[in-house]
């Protein structure tokens, strides 16, 4: 077993885990933050995307001990507790950018990362290209792309 310590959604957390424990397992099974999903478990689908020190990463392809001391943000930590939804979450709701919802947490975490890297004015081509690592099997992506463009704009207004 190995001791891990990191900050998750602004809170210092620790755990004693098998070295094989992936970050996504640590989040879901030890911290009970089940918003982060495991889809493919092969780093293809992006359902497990979280932010490590502000950058989108697939938490199914990272050992928990690799992010010792890091700052992790999951879908649960995107909006302030008991506050309104994050603008990107709100945009997904507004544009009906989900059907079954399984890919949604990863989509939203990836979307926020895209805005951080590419700015608030995103065209469709950019969004589709940047979403290469996130797979949705229901929506056909159209509403996801619309939601990300809208969410990016709202984020720019400092909402």
């Amino acid at each position: 077993m190995t001791a891990v310590a990191m900050t998750v959604n602004g809170k210092a957390v620790t755990g004693d885990v098998d070295p094989r424990t992936l970050l996504v397992q640590f989040l879901r099974e030890h911290l009970r933050l089940t918003g982060t999903h495991v889809g493919c478990d092969t780093s293809q689908c992006g359902a497990c995307v979280v932010h490590i020190d502000g950058k989108a990463v697939k938490s199914c392809t990272t050992f928990a001990w690799q992010v010792q001391g890091a700052n992790i943000t999951t879908i649960e930590g995107l909006a302030a507790p008991n506050g309104p939804l994050h603008p990107m979450q709100e945009a997904f709701r507004e544009h009906h950018a989900l059907q079954c919802g399984y890919c949604t947490p990863g989509m939203i975490m990836a979307a926020v990362d895209i805005v951080q890297r590419k700015g608030n004015d995103l065209d469709e081509k950019t969004i589709r290209h940047e979403l290469e690592g996130n797979i949705c099997r229901c929506t056909g992506y159209h509403n996801i792309v619309k939601a990300i463009a809208a969410g990016a704009k709202t984020m720019g207004k400092g909402a």
Partner: peptide
């Protein structure tokens, strides 16, 4: 890969 893969 994709953006998340390129981050690692």
């Amino acid at each position: 890969g994709d953006p998340a893969v390129r981050h690692r």
